[in-house]
C-alpha cells in the first residue's frame, strides 16, 4: 500500500470514528481539553504504525487512547495545583447563585473517580468490554477490573441519586 493510500485510509478512519473515540477520551480523562490532546496523541501514534495495523484499527486506537490517558494522568504538569488561583472568583457572573445542574454533579463525580475506577467503569459499561478484555487494556487482573468497576459505579450512582432523587438500575 502506498503512502497516499495509507493517508487516505487514515483520513477516512478519523473522519468516521473520531466522534466515539473523542467521547471515550473524554470519559477517561474527565476533561474536554485533555480529551482532545489524548485523542490527538493517540491518533498520531496510530498513524505512525498504520501500515502494521491490520484488522481492527479502532480497537488499536482505543487501546492507545487508554494508554495515553493513563500516561497523561501521571504527568506532573497535569496534576491539579490548588494554590494558583484559590482567590479567584469562580462563580459564573451571569448566574452566581444558580443551582448546580445534574450534569455538573455527574461531571464532578466522574472527575473525582481515581483513574483506574474511571477506566474500568468506562471500558466495561460504555465500551462494553468483558472484564478480561478490560483487564488486558488496563494491565491488571479481571478481578481488579470487577472491583474497580463496582466501586466506581457506586459513586456515580450515588451522585446521580443525590442530584435527581432517582436511582440507577444496576443492569446494563
Amino acid at each position: 500500500m502506498s503512502e497516499d493510500d495509507r493517508d487516505h485510509e487514515f483520513h477516512r478512519f478519523v473522519s468516521e470514528r473520531s466522534g466515539p473515540l473523542l467521547r471515550l477520551a473524554y470519559l477517561l480523562s474527565a476533561d474536554r481539553a485533555a480529551a482532545e490532546d489524548v485523542l490527538q496523541t493517540a491518533l498520531v501514534r496510530a498513524y505512525l504504525r498504520w501500515g502494521r495495523i491490520s484488522s481492527n484499527p479502532e480497537a488499536y486506537v482505543r487501546r492507545v487512547v487508554v494508554t495515553v490517558a493513563a500516561d497523561e494522568r501521571r504527568r506532573p504538569y497535569r496534576r491539579r495545583e490548588v494554590s494558583a488561583a484559590q482567590d479567584i472568583d469562580h462563580a459564573d457572573p451571569a448566574d452566581p447563585f444558580g443551582a448546580v445542574e445534574v450534569s455538573q454533579r455527574l461531571r464532578d463525580a466522574l472527575r473525582s473517580l481515581p483513574p483506574g475506577q474511571r477506566a474500568a467503569v468506562v471500558l466495561r459499561h460504555w465500551v462494553g468490554l468483558e472484564p478480561a478484555e478490560a483487564a488486558e487494556l488496563m494491565g491488571c487482573s479481571a478481578e481488579n477490573v470487577r472491583s474497580q468497576t463496582a466501586r466506581g459505579l457506586d459513586k456515580l450512582r450515588a451522585a446521580y441519586a443525590a442530584a435527581t432523587g432517582e436511582s440507577v438500575d444496576s443492569g446494563r
Binding site: L27, V121, V122, H125, W126, L156, V168, D169, G171
Partner: peptide, 8 residues
C-alpha cells in the same frame, strides 16, 4: 436509567 445510560 441504567449504568450505560448514565455514562452516555
Amino acid at each position: 436509567m441504567n449504568d450505560h445510560d448514565l455514562l452516555e
